[in-house]
């Protein structure tokens, strides 16, 4: 069993490397031009942010409506540190790594402070409090001097590119995957399934809710930092309520509780609006319509809680489809609370 798992990980790692090499070759051969390259970087950023929200929304079963706010915290704090670090002339990896970790930490700390009062309670309080937080953070950034205010923050070193965005996304996903399969992850999932029962079997629900949400805010901050270092310019109006809702749409569409679903939905929902520029007026109309229809007819999302797995697909395509179907039908997803 242990040996099988190891083989499995190596297999997936191989697939990830091969996929990277293919993309990189296509980019060097200019089959993927700079414009599409930009879209791919945004897909990676959205995978990180939506993956982090999936931990809260899909695995913990709590609705958070302020992920754009955490992105903003991560983006601004990492950008400010990065501007300061520029004079030290560090190698790119260290420079970007320090800035992103700093952004993620600040975002995680704020996430903990914001989340704790709401997570001590049951019900929709997290949605309310994160929504309020998202609004506050925008007003704060708009009115502070050192964040550049409404004019935005410029002069951020443009050191994020496809290569580091891709590998950061891979590391984040691997971490999330390992987390939800650990003892702590099972505790988090048990809260989604039945909070009262989880408490009854001795799980410290407040602690695990706070843990899940803090990690979620941390990675949203990393995603925001990556965004800052790719754009090299930040404007507080980017991180509005609509942005938070877009991230929720990605998670819901891909399947609450499916990381591979999030990857797929990020790729589709990030590239579609770029490819269908002519319909930009109707984009949010269609998003919202899909969201409502999805909730009524397929509340578990496209993948449900199922994970797409290469190994299972290779070894027995038929059994794989069966398993996917069973998990995607959402028999085991009863959602948070009543």
């Amino acid at each position: 069993m242990d040996f099988n798992n190891k083989k499995n990980y190596l297999f997936n790692l191989g697939a990830v490397i091969i996929f990277f090499v293919i993309l990189k070759l296509l980019m060097n051969g200019n089959v993927i031009n700079r414009y599409y390259q930009g879209i791919i970087v945004f897909i990676c950023i959205n995978i990180i942010v939506a993956g982090s929200l999936n931990l809260t929304l899909g695995f913990l079963g709590q609705l958070a409506l302020g992920h754009a706010g955490f992105m903003a915290v991560g983006a601004y704090s990492s950008a400010l540190l990065s501007i300061y670090l520029r004079s030290l002339e560090l190698p790119v990896i260290m420079h970007l790594g320090t800035a992103l970790l700093f952004g993620g930490l600040i975002s995680g700390i704020i996430g903990y402070l914001i989340g704790l009062p709401a997570l001590r309670l049951r019900g929709d309080y997290l949605a309310i409090i994160t929504l309020g937080f998202g609004e506050i953070i925008r007003v704060v950034i708009n009115n502070l001097k050192f964040t550049g205010g409404a004019q935005g923050l410029s002069g951020i070193p443009k050191i994020a590119n496809f290569t580091n965005a891709y590998w950061i996304a891979v590391v984040v996903l691997a971490f999330l995957y390992a987390l939800i399969r650990s003892r702590h992850g099972r505790a988090i999932i048990s809260i989604r399934e039945d909070e009262i029962a989880a408490e009854a079997v001795g799980i410290d629900t407040v602690k695990y809710k706070a843990l899940g949400f803090t990690i979620s805010a941390f990675f949203a901050g990393i995603g925001g930092g990556l965004f800052a270092h790719y754009m090299a310019y930040l404007d507080p109006s980017i991180f509005n309520f609509m942005k938070s809702v877009e991230i929720v749409v990605i998670v819901v569409l891909g399947g609450m509780g499916s990381l591979t679903g999030t990857i797929l939905a990020s790729a589709v929902l990030t590239s579609l609006p770029e490819l269908l520029r002519n319909f930009s007026e109707y984009r949010l109309l269609i998003y919202s319509f899909v969201l409502v229809v999805m909730m009524i007819f397929r509340p578990q999302g496209i993948f449900g809680t199922a994970e797409f797995s290469l190994k299972n697909l290779m070894s027995s395509p038929k059994g794989f489809m069966k398993k996917m179907k069973r998990d995607a039908s959402g028999d085991d997803l009863n959602g948070g609370g009543k």
Binding site: G61, Q62, G123, V292, M295, N334, G336, G337, K338
Partner: peptide, 10 residues
Amino acid sequence: PRISALITAI
């Protein structure tokens, strides 16, 4: 589940 209704409302 309540979360579905909440997402629908949004």
